[in-house]
Computed example of a mutant assay.
Amino acid sequence: MARAATTADAFNAVAEPRRRQILDALATGERSVNDLVAALDLPQPQVSKHLRVLREVGLVLVREEGRRRLYRLDGRPLKAIHDWVGRYERSWSQRFDLLDAVLADLKDEEAEPDGGTDDDE
């Protein structure tokens, strides 16, 4: 069975942890391949391979400055991921609210006096 292409969309591209590291590094500004190699302690061919995938899905833009290529983040393709996760965020918030209520009840129970029971009997 053939493996799905990692360049199909932003979801697949960011599924790879090294690509997320590259995006994190580019979130602070434009960088060259050599800057990324040094920052991430990865071999240059591996960084270049991941940059190619990120470029193909539109997450990274490149501009040439003399002989150097400078890469920068383009977050627009991340909107699809943000929108998708947003649907689940509502559910998480509701669950956390319920958990907060349970924890508050438990805390109140701990703070209440015994109700007059005598443990010495």
Rank of each mutant, 00 (worst) to 15 (best):
A2M: 12
A2C: 07
R3E: 14
A4N: 08
A5G: 10
T6F: 07
A8K: 15
A8N: 12
F11E: 05
F11R: 05
V14R: 01
E16Q: 12
E16W: 06
P17F: 07
P17D: 12
R18L: 11
I22M: 13
I22L: 13
L23Q: 03
D24G: 10
A27D: 06
A27I: 03
G29C: 05
E30I: 02
R31S: 10
S32E: 08
V33R: 04
V33P: 01
D35T: 02
L36A: 01
L42R: 07
L42C: 04
L42D: 04
Q44T: 09
P45W: 03
V47D: 03
K49R: 15
L51W: 00
V57I: 09
L61C: 05
L61G: 08
V62C: 11
E65P: 00
E65G: 03
G66T: 04
R67T: 13
R68L: 04
R72D: 02
R72T: 03
R76P: 00
L78Q: 00
L78V: 04
K79F: 14
I81G: 02
W84H: 10
W84I: 03
R87L: 11
E89F: 06
R90N: 08
S93K: 14
Q94D: 13
R95Q: 12
D97Y: 12
D97R: 10
L98G: 11
L98D: 12
L99G: 01
L99D: 04
L99R: 07
V102W: 12
V102Y: 14
L103H: 14
L103Q: 15
A104K: 11
D105V: 14
D105I: 08
L106W: 09
L106Y: 07
K107W: 09
K107R: 12
K107F: 12
E110D: 14
A111M: 12
E112M: 12
D114T: 14
D114P: 01
G115M: 09
G116I: 03
G116H: 08
T117N: 06
D118A: 10
D119V: 07
D120L: 13
